[in-house]
Amino acid sequence: MNFETSTLKAQFKLPIKSKEELEKIKKLKVNKISLSGEILKVNYEELLNFPNLETLYFENCTLDFLAMSILTKLNKLKKLYLINCEILDDNSKLLANLNLENLVIDHTVLNFNNLPILKASNITLARIDMPNIKIITENLDIANVTYQNIDFLNNIIASTIKVPYQMYIQNENVFNLLSSKIIVLEENTNFVYKEVN
């Protein structure tokens, strides 16, 4: 078992040996860099040993075709967190095929040109350039994205969108006309400034 995961460590069962024990695991964190800065070896194929995974965190990982195709085989996966990762170009499409409740993409290199659609019940995009692609979700959090303009709004179908203060203030009329509920955060904080619509 090559996974060095705080989630697993917290369960105090490493090293896990039996298949039954692995099947009980519903939440896993895969982090290629340990707290002490060591780069750890990660064999993504071992994820198939966790058929009941519901929540999966990738941190500091480069996800190649193999890794992404393995995700499509985790049928119970509901929540995916990509933090400080890199998704190699040709694999973004696989991300769109996952049937997720929660999708968080935080400071992750992703070629959105190859990504036809992002779909999940809750989507958080943070510390990335806001992509101009179709996004279908209940709750979209884009309070921490960078953006050139707000053309991307044309492609978003969401019940609620959490946006940063500056984005809202500069485009107040546009946001007020949207059918989505808009949650505006205070400038430079994560406290709610106001809700509109």
């Binding site: 929540t55 929540k79 409740e101 929660n102 968080v104 935080d106 958080t124 709750n139």
Partner: peptide, 12 residues
């Protein structure tokens, strides 16, 4: 560390 994302569990 990261600040808890929307929808991410508070309890474990």
């Amino acid at each position: 560390c990261h600040y808890q994302y929307d929808g991410e569990a508070e309890n474990e």
